[in-house]
Amino acid sequence: MSALLEVRDLTVQLKMDSGMREVITGTSLTIAEGEAMGLVGESGSGKSMTAKAIARLLPDGADVQGSVTFDGTDVLALDGDALRKHRAQVAVVFQDPRAHINPVRRIEDFMTESLRILESVSKPDAAKRAAAALEEVGIDDPGKRLRQFPHELSGGMLQRVMIATALLSEPRLLLADECTTALDVTTQAEVMAILDDLRRDRGLSMLFITHDLELAGAVCDRTCVMYAGQVVETRAASLLHGDPLHPYSAALVQARPDISSTAERLVAIPGRPVSAFEAPSGCRFAPRCPHAEDACRAEEQVLTELDGGRVRCRRAAELRGRLLDGAHV
């Protein structure tokens, strides 16, 4: 498998009222053709900003260092038509479909807009393709839905419209940014299943952003865990849940209720998540880590290879296998 997307040493600073603030520090990741990569972390960890950098949707005045390469082209250097072509190849499914779909235009207009404008598909043809796409995501009576306005559809249905629309333009990479978070639990499962099916059918690459480690494990090949703007662990998704290498990944695993076993108590991660610009020097997770030592706080941690994965923790090898059991603090 060759890499479709390669992000190398990405550092992003955003312009805020108080000056430039760093939100991503030296993030690297690759996604192969047809691969699904999970990007997991708490809010402020920089996962959404990474996706925005890949789609070139960062706000004005953002300072971006490092490189993003998509299918051999340098994404950060694109502008004009080339940039729009890149954006058309990278489809984004946003978290809140109600805010991300223009409320005053009909569903048909939303779904067929880029077909008509970018690919000059005729209006009836575009409508036919939109109707077919709606059926694929399990929406009945597509003809009627196409004529409706967004406020007439439920949140789950709108998110399915969003997914159908994303697939309609035949993208090569799908960026799914917390795309089920705003939905209720049963709808979440349905939407997730549809997304997973359609992606696999098409052999589409995906960057799946979520704060739910287990969900990432279920739909992704590999998972990348971010904390305070840095990648702290990258691993095969199936392994990460049972055998995390980084104390933060382990904490995420334990912070989630497990319905298959009866845990005595749900473990919350002490402290609050921080953004890159508020992070301490040395290991950024140290203040919240039960295994932190003085040496952790003293030096910047680097990503190192360990058992087919990469982890940013100097004690990873030593703590291996002990992170999940008996380590409740």
Partner: peptide
């Protein structure tokens, strides 16, 4: 929703 439109390469 304007961001969505931008993200689609319009």
């Amino acid at each position: 929703h304007v961001q969505t439109a931008v993200s689609r390469g319009l």
